[in-house]
């Protein structure tokens, strides 16, 4: 074969010359690059997920009073799930986070959007300072934020309770009817700035000639916000709403930490707290795993349902 013939032969197979050759030549390389990640992924994500699902279908039988005569496990079918879903504490916990989500998530999203629009409207002074101040709480871990706020809630220490007394108000942040909203306040305080940044990022991607055209047509700032900015930042809002929905279902840290100062927070206050209590206080891993699976599935269904709903609404 002469040199020209080789070139011609290569040209003849031109449409897909690179792919098969690369596949042969570097067969091992991608797997070597992927291997450490995959090994840890299997150990810390995949295996636990499989284990959780397996556990949720397993019954643990302890022979003797404390299991001293041996522990066996057997297939339980959907028993753990029925037991979890008929446990009134767990159902109440789900109702509680739903109520929390229905109120807190929209309030926070509207709050974050208004702040983003005001900061980007160029009608305020020192926007960089305000943006930094609002984002700052996001850097404080949930536990630390909750401890901090718990000091602002506890009577005797709290300047807020003292201030309330001055004007004749007896504020109880930790009572059975108020503590859920005290938790909502901590979550709002922590995440509003983060959601605001998501919205600002989206606002910044709107081309400036759209604004100019609108102003040329005599649109007021309010009109620009409702007719141009809000429709265009919809994807960012949907994204932050989905994150918030998932976060709400996972609620754990705030009630777990406030639990020591508020007797109103029962041991199964949120679904995750219920799973935690069942696992570590009652040693019932089957129920705990079933609850964890239910929470994860609920998060999937809610976020995909929400995405599907907003997509359909966007098209019509």
């Amino acid at each position: 074969m002469t040199a020209t013939e080789t070139v011609a032969a290569e040209r003849a197979s031109a449409p897909a010359p690179v792919r098969p050759r690369r596949r042969r030549k570097f067969l091992g390389a991608p797997w070597i690059l992927l291997a450490p990640f995959l090994a840890l992924f299997v150990l810390t994500v995949l295996a636990p997920v499989i284990l959780a699902v397996a556990q949720s279908f397993t019954r643990i039988n302890r022979a003797g009073m404390f299991g001293e005569k041996g522990v066996t496990s057997s297939f339980a079918g959907f028993d753990n799930f029925t037991q979890a879903l008929t446990n009134s504490n767990f159902i109440q916990a789900i109702g509680r986070v739903l109520l929390f989500g229905v109120v807190q998530v929209p309030v926070m999203t509207v709050f974050a959007t208004v702040l983003a629009l005001l900061l980007e409207s160029a009608s305020a002074r020192w926007p960089a300072f305000f943006r930094a101040a609002y984002f700052l709480p996001y850097g404080i871990p949930g536990v630390i934020a909750t401890i901090l706020w718990s000091f602002l809630y506890v009577p005797g220490l709290s300047p807020l309770v003292d201030a309330g007394k001055l004007v004749g108000l007896d504020i109880d942040f930790l009572g059975p009817n108020t503590v859920l909203w005290s938790i909502a306040n901590i979550v709002t305080w922590t995440y509003t700035g983060y959601n605001m940044l998501i919205v600002i990022a989206q606002l910044k991607s709107i081309p400036s000639d759209i604004y100019e055209a609108a102003r040329m047509d005599g649109a007021s700032p309010l009109r620009i916000a409702t007719s141009i900015q809000l429709p265009l930042i919809r994807p960012a809002l949907v994204l932050s709403l989905v994150f918030s929905i998932i976060g709400t279902l996972q609620l754990f840290v705030e009630p777990q930490v406030l639990h020591t100062v508020s007797p109103a927070i029962v041991s199964e206050y949120t679904p995750n707290l219920s799973a935690y209590t069942n696992a570590f206080a009652y040693n019932d891993y089957g129920i705990a795993s079933a609850e964890a699976v239910i929470i994860a599935v609920a998060a999937f269904v809610l976020s995909f349902g929400f995405l599907a709903w907003t997509n359909r609404k966007g098209r019509s």
Partner: peptide, 17 residues
Amino acid sequence: GGVLVPSTATALPLFLL
């Protein structure tokens, strides 16, 4: 799929493992 699995759901089985 792993991105979508909430970390609170894997914490308990991770402990058992």
